[in-house]
């Protein structure tokens, strides 16, 4: 969980050597020195600038627009100019709207469930397949495939498989003599079914990142552990997993952020139903905007979603910082 760790460490010495390399030939022309130094110091910012500018434009403009919109009452199909300023009315509305709270709960449940399951499965698969056996590379390729399928297609395929009359699971259960399961029509099961589909598609993401992390572990440390008497699983638990942790943490965070924005698969599988049982926030926003045609309210909703994701990221960063601080303190105290 050391996101920022390597970067500072690497940038500093590079800048330092660049500065140190200059003086000797320029000593005679001392007045140019400050300029040189300034240029050197500015170099990183110059390189970052194009990306920063594009990101700011592409990110800030829609975001500000959406904030502005969330203070107005604007129906779809009417000119934007006729929209009314309504102050905080949209936010007041959504805080009193039980549907908002329901979809927030669904979103949180969905996001945390998929991330936990995907991380556990992905890391376990990577550990199992991190060896040189025949067919292993074939398996690795197969496991990565779901990630490459377009979400719309994933939704359609799973919708077919879940179908209660002629779906794949229905056939299987029937053949085995079990009663049919209302995968998508039961409010209790629907969210689980949706979670399963997402796990199917995104476990490979954790899997390939974990596998890459595993294969770049220091080989001699693993050999040292073997000599120190670690069994296969002790090695996994005491050496491999801790050393993979920074990669796993970042992968999990990326998945979490992504899980908050998922739309297509759920839209196709359940359209948020039955009832509101699978209506995650992005779907709720979509419906508010294009079914209820309340663009101002939809903007307020999406700002709330943004705030939630932002809060999670900040919490994550804070946890990392606190942990690092505590480690440093502990080291200093001893």
């Amino acid at each position: 969980m050391q996101l920022s760790d390597g970067f500072e460490g690497k940038l500093m010495p590079a800048g330092a050597t660049a500065g140190a390399a200059v003086p000797t030939p320029l000593r005679g022309t001392a007045k140019y020195l400050p300029l040189r130094k300034a240029l050197n110091r500015a170099a990183p910012y110059v390189f970052i600038a194009p990306a920063a500018i594009i990101t700011t434009l592409a990110l800030a403009y829609p975001m500000l627009q959406s904030v502005w919109l969330s203070f107005r009452d604007w129906s779809l199909g009417t000119p934007l100019g006729q929209s009314r300023f309504v102050g905080l009315a949209n936010y007041e509305w959504l805080l009193h709207d039980p549907n908002f709270w329901a979809s927030a709960a669904v979103t949180l449940t969905f996001a945390f469930a998929v991330v936990v399951v995907e991380v556990l499965l992905g890391v376990m698969l990577a550990i199992l397949l991190d060896r040189e056996l025949r067919f292993v590379s074939l398996f690795r390729t197969i496991f990565i495939l779901p990630m490459m399928v377009a979400p719309i297609v994933v939704g359609l395929v799973w919708r077919y498989m879940y179908n209660e009359q002629f779906g794949t699971f229905a056939h299987l259960l029937k053949a085995l003599g079990f009663a049919p399961v209302p995968w998508l029509s039961s409010p209790k099961l629907a969210l689980i079914s949706v979670i399963i589909a997402d796990v199917w598609q995104w476990t490979p993401f954790i899997f390939i990142l974990s596998l890459a992390a595993l294969q770049s572990l220091p080989a001699s440390a693993l050999e040292a552990a073997r000599i120190d008497g670690a069994t296969h699983w002790q090695m996994v638990w005491h050496i491999k997993v801790p050393l993979m942790m920074p990669v796993i943490a970042v992968a999990a965070l990326l998945r979490l952020i992504d899980a908050f924005k998922v739309l297509e698969v759920i839209y196709i599988l359940t359209e948020g139903g039955p009832g509101l049982s699978t209506e995650i926030m992005s779907l709720h926003i979509y419906k508010t905007a294009f079914v209820s045609q309340q663009l101002g309210q939809a903007a307020a909703l999406s700002n709330m979603l943004l705030l939630i994701v932002l809060a999670l990221t900040v919490i994550f960063a804070a946890l990392t910082a606190v942990r690092q601080r505590r480690e440093k303190l502990a080291a200093a105290r001893r």
């Binding site: 220091p218 001699s220 440390a221 050999e223 040292a224 000599i227």
Partner: peptide, 19 residues
Amino acid sequence: DPKDRDIAMVFQDYALYPH
């Protein structure tokens, strides 16, 4: 297995556990 041979080893690149 290495663990059953009653040996200890020092590696060229030290092979310390980084964490």
